[in-house]
């Protein structure tokens, strides 16, 4: 038995004796704070409702998952550990952290309680807070590449129906699917809604001799399939000048196939990961998408037409 334990108990009993009753004094303060917190919570829930991204798609390997903000520091910390070490660090770091947290009362056992009387533990706590804040800030700053806006529900429903009916048995979208019918991402976006509607109700009526069977779809089903088809734009062609623009302006740092420099990322398959709009915005000014990018902004260096051209060219790479 530590000698100060008895002493503390006696002193605490005295302090408690002199204190005020839990009800109503403490309860009053608790209720005030609770109401304040509740007000903020309601305001957030009302003005900033929870977001919902598109339906989970297990085949979408380009999705870049990010954790909830309070796990972001861990996510960022793991970037310091290369390759195999990352797996160990992902378990070891949080494990040790929890163990240390549980051990605090058994490591710091003296009678001193004031933060200024325990410089080691106070310093450790402040360092922990600073580390958490710095890592979280670094995580927030690293670029977010996923759209947070909701996809059109009609389009999402159409995509699901497309999967359910196994349309991909005959048709390609994004390079995946059969070759019996046309690749839909190349052609369907150019057709009018009226044409598509008639097509889905009876393919032969607009394309005599079509091998596509009549599907006996409901009107609602036709509607969502049309919405899905219209959401795909035919690939926009680039001009013959695009490869030359790339060679003159980009190839010093970027590889395309076997040609090009190594200062920046290899762009041979960029079209599988980024669409034209993203690339165009990136080329115009990289810092809006990736604040610490070393790449210069090309708006002003190249004309808008040239940037559009090179963006179309790059978005076709690897597809």
């Amino acid at each position: 038995m530590n000698p100060w334990h008895e002493d503390y108990k006696r002193r605490y009993a005295q302090l408690k004796e002199n204190g005020k009753s839990f009800f109503p004094h403490t309860v009053f303060k608790d209720v005030c704070v609770a109401l304040l917190v509740l007000t903020v919570l309601f305001a957030l829930a009302y003005y900033r409702p929870a977001e919902l991204e598109p339906l989970a798609d297990p085949t979408d390997t380009h999705y870049n998952p990010r954790p909830e903000w309070y796990f972001l520091f861990l996510f960022q910390a793991l970037k310091f550990f290369p390759g195999n070490l990352e797996a160990v660090a992902a378990i070891l770091l949080p494990g040790l952290g929890v163990l240390l947290l549980m051990g605090v009362p058994f490591l710091d056992r003296g009678p001193k309680r004031h933060p200024f009387d325990r410089p080691l533990w106070t310093g450790l706590g402040l360092a922990g807070i600073a580390g958490f804040a710095a890592l979280t800030w670094a995580g927030v700053r690293s670029p977010l590449t996923n759209p947070t806006e909701e996809a059109d529900p009609q389009v999402a429903a159409g995509r699901r129906l497309y999967d359910q009916m196994s349309c991909a048995y005959c048709h390609k979208i994004g390079g995946k699917g059969g070759a019996v019918g046309p690749a839909l991402d190349k052609v369907a976006g150019d057709e009018t809604e009226e044409w598509l509607t008639r097509h889905f109700k009876d393919p032969q009526s607009v394309t005599p001799g079509s091998a596509m069977p009549k599907m006996n779809l409901l009107d609602d089903e036709v509607k969502i399939l049309v919405a899905y088809m219209k959401s795909m734009h035919a690939e926009e062609p680039f001009t013959k000048a695009a490869p030359k623009i790339f060679a003159d302006n980009c190839a010093a740092c970027h590889k395309l196939g076997k040609e090009g420099g190594e200062a920046g990322p290899d762009l041979s398959f960029i079209g599988t990961a980024r669409d034209k709009a993203f690339i165009k915005k990136y080329v115009e000014d990289p810092s809006t998408s990736k604040p610490d990018s070393a790449m210069p902004a090309f708006k002003g260096q190249l004309t808008d037409v040239q940037i559009e051209d090179v963006a179309r060219y790059l978005s076709s790479q690897g597809r």
Binding site: Y12, K16, N18, S21, T26, K29, D30, V33, A34, V37
Partner: peptide, 25 residues
């Protein structure tokens, strides 16, 4: 409800409401 609580004045007293706020959430 009628147990006594050692006095905590001012903003230090406010820090003692964080636990009950967590429970309310």
């Amino acid at each position: 409800m009628e147990r006594h609580i050692p006095e905590a004045k001012g903003w230090v007293g406010l820090l003692y409401t964080l636990g009950s706020a967590t429970m309310m959430i």
